[in-house]
């Protein structure tokens, strides 16, 4: 039952992607990056909602976890109430330094590659990062790194972090084409 539902979720997500332009010609340099950024490990906290999601099924985070004013949870139910600086409880509870949601301006849910690419580069939305700063963020930020080493029981983005950085470098060197 559950498997079947996941299958349908996956299928409908793929269909949505097709419709939203995922299969349309984009910058070939950005396409593999897009596939990483829209993986649940990234997207679950790059939401357009006032709450994070969890799991590959991207369910609304249990416990009525909220985004909060500073993207780190409700005033007295902060992300750090549970999330440590590293995974704990045999990886059951994920953790990394400054665990929290990306700002709403960096929410990517439902976006096709072109739109996401544009938002990603928009310094009014991405915290004032130029392409080099973006690259550095993706190279070093502990939360980004966690996404590529999320611990047992979690699926991985389509490429590993080393490859991801290579892809980003190519994209940045090409001027960040969308």
């Amino acid at each position: 039952m559950l498997l079947l539902r996941n299958y349908w979720l996956g299928l409908s997500a793929a269909l949505a992607l097709l419709v939203s332009g995922g299969a349309l010609a984009q910058s070939p340099l950005f396409t593999p990056i897009y596939e990483v950024l829209t993986h649940p490990r990234c997207l679950n906290c790059h939401t357009l909602t006032d709450f994070p999601r969890q799991g590959d099924e991207r369910r609304r985070h249990d416990q009525l976890v909220m985004r909060g004013e500073d993207n780190h949870g409700a005033p007295t139910l902060q992300c750090s109430a549970c999330h440590q600086e590293q995974n704990v409880a045999e990886d059951k509870v994920p953790g990394a330094p400054h665990w929290g949601l990306a700002p709403l301006s960096m929410g990517w849910e439902g976006m096709g590659p072109r739109e996401l690419c544009t938002v990603l580069k928009d310094q009014s939305k991405n915290g004032g990062k130029d392409l080099q700063a973006l690259l550095k963020h993706m190279e070093e930020d502990p939360l980004v790194l966690w996404g590529f080493d999320p611990g047992e029981g979690r699926t991985l983005p389509p490429v590993d972090h080393t490859r991801f950085v290579e892809l980003l470098e190519q994209w940045v060197n090409a001027g960040g084409p969308c």
């Binding site: 416990q63 750090s80 109430a81 549970c82 409880a89 509870v93």
Partner: peptide, 23 residues
């Protein structure tokens, strides 16, 4: 033991925190 139930809640610097997952 997984910060799912809150029975272990203490305050760390006045913030409710699940002590069962805090090393």
């Amino acid at each position: 033991g997984q910060a799912l139930c809150g029975a272990c809640t203490v305050h760390v610097d006045d913030q409710p925190t699940r002590s069962c997952v805090m090393p």
